[in-house]
Nucleic acid binder design. Structure first.
Length: 473
RNA sequence: GCCCCUAUGGUCUAGCGGUUAGGACGCAGCCCUUUCAAGGCUAAAACCCGGGUUCGAGUCCCGGUAGGGGCACCA
């Protein structure tokens, strides 16, 4: 039985890297019909953001990732919030001390050498070999110790990682890390081992930054006589310029992207592809499909750059795949109020195929509510063989025609205008271009001449056509 | 400083000793077309460098280089 967990610290938002980690952990569990668990790692009392747990719930819900066990969903392995598990950690720390696998350390932070400090070579923690009397004496002085893991001085540790393969690290590289802080809270380094074991996690999925400390965790598992889990360390997601993604630098979080108009399903689809591929050419997946096709042994080792361009394309593909009804519902919240007089359903029909990002909708449709200022030169377009002259002739001829037009439907309008084109000798494109241009005031619009005319209605169509003609006179 | 990891077009990637190095995004062009899209077609664009091993190396080994990560009472 697979049991995986997503164990974020509550920082207040879900960044892209976190989303992918959650996703992979979820997919690995679900692929195996296993259990996916949410655990909150809030052991750093200095860093806790009060409302942040809610942000995690929201983020996961938005992504469609449902957990089987979590703080608000007991599965018999709780509590699922580390700050509520404090007694558990001290109990296990005590066991380690009794076994000699950990020790009390009374040093102050300043006593420790910095990385790069030459003294660090072969330097042992002075508290490592304190006798029980010496320890007691320090306790009697009222000193608050930390508990440190006693790493063997000799030897090396190896483990297998599903992404990176076999990793070996010399014990000399491992420091006697703090297990319990002086405030009694565990460090991540300790809590993750105890909790993963107690919660019966079978597969640990986390960022690559933990790769080199994994041997320390394995030593802990061994000291307790516990079975080590399988490891899946994930490469980082970076930016196209090679820098790392950071909220501070203005890089969007998952929630930001949703607010920008990217659909959660599309973001999920894109993010899962950052460091994984199905082994064939498929790129478009629903969450459900991902569960079926995901394979942890196909995760890449190298970091991947987040591309807005590709996200945009995938988002467009997801939008186009929607039924017209579903798209309409999705698009509705993005319509500006100024469009209320229009047939919104028809608008949705027109823009669906052209929409890559929902956030583009207001801009795409703005011209309907208010004709933009434009230059007469817009009527010149070599592709449709339109010139200032031809446009003027067409508009002059077409205005009276449309005045007489009774049914302002797309089909009827097209029939009328096409008939004019045939009769006048102008190409259909040459006829339509000036009309479309005058109706939109834009070089490109969501909809052709007759579609726009039908949408705008007879009155507004004629007003705009006259305005266009005025620019040409 | 020490240790770990990574390296295929601009980007995401396939490859797992013998391929004209495949696909996708983006970019350019063409077709289609009532503008723009969408769709279709075409093009340009890559194995970090140097040594080995081998009949043969993007693929295996070693060494560089470059990038990332770790060495916290942060996770």
């Amino acid at each position: 039985m697979f049991r995986t967990r997503f164990a974020p610290s509550p920082t207040g938002y879900m960044h892209i890297g976190n989303l992918r980690t959650a996703l992979y952990a979820y997919l690995i569990a679900k692929k195996a019909h296993g259990t996916f668990i949410l655990r909150i790692e809030d052991t750093d009392q200095k860093r806790n953001v009060p409302e942040a747990v809610q942000a995690i719930y929201n983020g996961l819900a938005l992504a469609g990732i449902a957990y089987d066990e979590g703080p608000d969903k007991d599965g018999g392995h709780g509590p699922y919030v580390q700050s509520q598990r404090k007694p558990i950690y001290s109990q296990y720390a005590k066991q380690l001390i009794e076994q000699g696998d950990a020790y009390y350390c009374f040093c102050q932070k300043e006593d420790k050498p910095e990385p790069g400090d030459e003294r660090i070579e072969g330097l042992k923690d002075p508290c490592r070999d304190l006798s029980s009397e010496e320890v007691q004496a320090r306790f009697d002085q009222g000193l608050q110790p930390v508990v440190r893991q006693r790493i063997p001085l000799e030897g090396e540790s190896s483990f297998f990682d599903h992404v990176y393969g076999d990793i070996t690290i010399d014990h000399k590289q491992l420091d006697d890390q703090v297990l319990l802080k002086s405030d009694g809270f565990p460090t991540y380094n300790f809590a993750n081992v105890v909790d993963d074991h107690l919660m019966e996690i079978t597969h640990v999925i986390r960022g690559q930054e933990y790769l080199s400390s994994t041997p320390k965790y394995n030593l802990l598992y061994q000291a307790f006589g516990w079975e080590t889990p399988e490891y899946i360390h994930l490469p980082h997601i970076i930016k196209e310029d090679g820098k790392k993604l950071s909220k501070r630098a203005g890089d969007p979080t998952f929630e930001d992207l949703v607010h920008m108009g990217y659909m959660p399903e599309a973001i999920v689809n894109y993010v899962v592809l950052l460091g994984w591929n199905p082994g064939d050419d498929r790129e478009l997946f629903s969450l459900q499909e991902l569960i079926e096709v995901f394979d942890m042994d196909r995760i890449n080792k190298s970091s991947a750059a987040f591309s807005m361009d590709k996200l945009r394309w995938i988002n467009g593909e997801h939008i186009r795949a929607l039924s017209p009804e579903a798209f309409h519902e999705t698009a509705l919240p993005w319509y500006p109020g100024s469009l209320h007089r229009f047939d919104l359903k028809e608008l949705s029909r027109l823009i669906q195929i052209r929409t890559d990002c929902l956030g583009d909708i207001p801009e795409m449709l703005g011209f309907l509510a208010k004709l933009p200022e434009y230059e007469a030169s817009l009527f010149e377009n070599p592709k449709s063989k339109s010139s200032l002259e031809s446009s003027k002739i067409v508009l002059e001829a077409v205005i009276p025609l449309l005045k007489k037009q009774e049914t302002f439907s797309n089909a009827a309008l097209f029939e009328t205008l096409k008939a004019y084109a045939t009769e006048s000798g102008f190409k259909v494109g040459t006829t339509m271009w000036p009309i479309r241009t005058a109706l939109s005031g834009l070089p490109a619009s969501a909809g052709g001449a007759t579609e726009l005319a039908a949408l705008l209605g007879k009155e507004e169509t004629l007003i705009r056509l006259e305005k266009g003609l005025a620019k040409l006179s």
